Amino acid sequence: MRLLVVEDHQDLLDSIIEILSDEYVLDSATDGEEALFLAMQAIYDAIILDVMLPGLDGFEIVQKLRSAEIDTPVLFLTAKDSLEDRVKGLDLGGDDYIVKPFQGPELKARLRALLRRSGALTTKQTVRYRGIELFGKDKQVLVDGHPIKLTAKQYELLEYLIHNKKVILTKEQIYDRVWGFNSDTTIAIVEVFIHHLRKKLEPFGYHTDIKTVRGVGYILTDD
């Protein structure tokens, strides 16, 4: 799963990345404008968002995201602990709060709870689509009860498609989500990996569920 961490204090940002990097793929931003640009790509499972930022603050970012109908879960990170601030953040579309200073285990627990509520994470970290089961803890895949072997990127691609089933995903969204903004590859890699993933699913008949939307991207659906 990919998270966006937004924090303008570099030491704290580095600390959060160290805490979470063993479980998640992380992108980061240190100002409001950059954070909004990244968040608007709609490629993240959750956003950890500082309230006080240079440029746009966290409240403004969430307001713009929700206005654009981007419902990525947001965990506000703030030194403000007043009831008024908490209510404002939640009313604007935030999902939870954690107050500085905090401990790593609390951050991880709040994040897991947020992901469970959004449906991105189940208790057993299992993702299902028809007869396909993905076991996040061990990165194992069963198709109609039969194990299949996927590379790490093939697994991430299938997981992303399943989380967004019946939603058209652009090639750019898939590329940014699976390979990241700093990847040395080109966007053409998306088409190559879709082809390979279809070949892995073909013996079970699920390859036709990954449909091409000409000129746009792909959608996972059995319609």
Rank of each mutant, 00 (worst) to 15 (best):
G145I: 08
G180V: 09
G94K: 07
D184L: 15
N164K: 10
V87I: 13
P203R: 10
T170I: 04
H146W: 07
I168K: 06
D222N: 08
M40W: 08
I168Q: 03
V99D: 04
D85P: 01
I98V: 01
L13E: 09
Y129Q: 11
R198I: 05
Q41D: 10
T170Q: 00
G205A: 13
L12T: 15
V87R: 09
G136E: 06
D222G: 02
E33W: 10
K149V: 14
Y97E: 08
T186C: 07
E84F: 12
V192P: 04
E84S: 13
L90R: 05
L77S: 06
H9T: 15
E202K: 12
Q140T: 14
G205V: 06
L150C: 08
E7H: 12
R66W: 05
R198D: 04
G32S: 07
Q10C: 10
A79R: 05
H9E: 15
V5K: 03
K166L: 14
K199T: 04
S82V: 04
P101G: 06
V192N: 13
L65K: 09
S28Q: 01
K200I: 01
K166T: 15
I19K: 01
Q140K: 15
Q63G: 05
K153W: 06
S67M: 11
F181P: 00
L56E: 06
K108W: 04
D222V: 06
I174C: 00
T122F: 10
L53W: 05
V192F: 14
K88I: 10
G180W: 07
K149R: 14
A113H: 15
K137L: 15
K165F: 11
E172F: 00
D45C: 09
L161E: 02
H146F: 13
P54D: 09
K139C: 09
I43E: 04
Y97R: 09
F59T: 06
T185I: 11
V178P: 00
R128W: 12
L12N: 08
L121P: 05
G55Q: 08
V6Q: 07
T186Y: 10
K171F: 04
I168Y: 00
V192Y: 12
A35Y: 12
G58A: 05
D57V: 05
S183D: 04
K149T: 05
L20F: 10
H146A: 13
F204K: 11
K139A: 14
F76P: 01
F76C: 02
Y155F: 10
G93P: 06
D91P: 01
Q63S: 14
Y44T: 03
L90A: 01
K80L: 02
D22E: 15
I189P: 03
